[in-house]
Simulated scan of single mutants.
Amino acid sequence: MAERDSFDEFVRGCSYRLFQVGCLLSGGDTHRAEDLVAEALARVYLAWPRVRSGDTDAFGYARRTLVNLHTDWWRRLRRRELLTDRLPERQDRTDASADIAQRDTVMRSLRRLTHRERAVVVFRYFLDLTEQETAAELGISVGTVKSTNARALAKLRASPDLKQPNHTVVLRPEVAIPVSTRSRDV
């Protein structure tokens, strides 16, 4: 029973953070993010005795599982057409607060990035991982992380939604991405 208690504690401590990563990776699709987190945690639960007893970082393992699940889903999605039985919701921005409007702007801009570019930006700036850690998580080289990050930031800087002088996108209070064309130090 102690093993289940430790897993329950792990889930309470990391599920919201995994949900945030899932939202960012899925372009703001909260339903998809919830599905990703549920599936990732189910897989971590099956491997919990091995994860808990080894040198494995449990959150890193769960995060990597989530990214792999999203990548698998994205690859399957590219191979077929996605049909829905309802129209997309229209957002009424007249009553939206500045935070909701900014989050919407960020999500629209992130959706314009490729899957890999979005993953690199999320890992580098939201999860605050180093280039080496990002490369290891995504299974790509450090050079690919650097070039993909540069392309992604260039796209974000050129994004019509973010085209304001000295505009800064805040993913979380301690992480800001300058997207002004004047700023070249990012």
Rank of each mutant, 00 (worst) to 15 (best):
M1F: 08
E3Q: 15
R4N: 15
R4A: 15
F7Y: 15
D8V: 15
R12M: 15
S15W: 13
Y16P: 00
F19I: 02
Q20N: 14
L24Y: 15
G27T: 01
E34P: 00
E34T: 11
D35C: 08
E39W: 02
R43K: 14
S53D: 14
S53N: 06
D57F: 03
Y61L: 00
A62Y: 01
L66W: 03
V67E: 08
N68I: 02
L69A: 07
T71I: 05
D72G: 06
D72S: 10
E81S: 09
L82C: 07
L82F: 08
D85F: 11
R86D: 09
L87M: 10
P88V: 06
D92F: 12
D92I: 12
T94W: 03
D95H: 06
A101Y: 04
A101L: 15
R103L: 11
D104M: 13
V106P: 00
S109Q: 03
S109N: 08
L110T: 01
R111S: 09
R116A: 10
A119S: 14
V122K: 03
V122T: 15
R124L: 06
R124P: 03
D128E: 10
L129C: 06
T130L: 05
Q132W: 08
A135K: 01
A136T: 08
E137A: 14
V142E: 04
G143H: 05
T144V: 05
T144K: 03
K146T: 10
K146W: 02
N149S: 14
A152F: 01
L156A: 06
A158I: 01
S159T: 02
S159Y: 04
D161C: 04
K163Q: 14
K163H: 13
P165D: 15
H167I: 05
P173F: 07
S180H: 12
S183R: 10
S183G: 02
R184D: 12
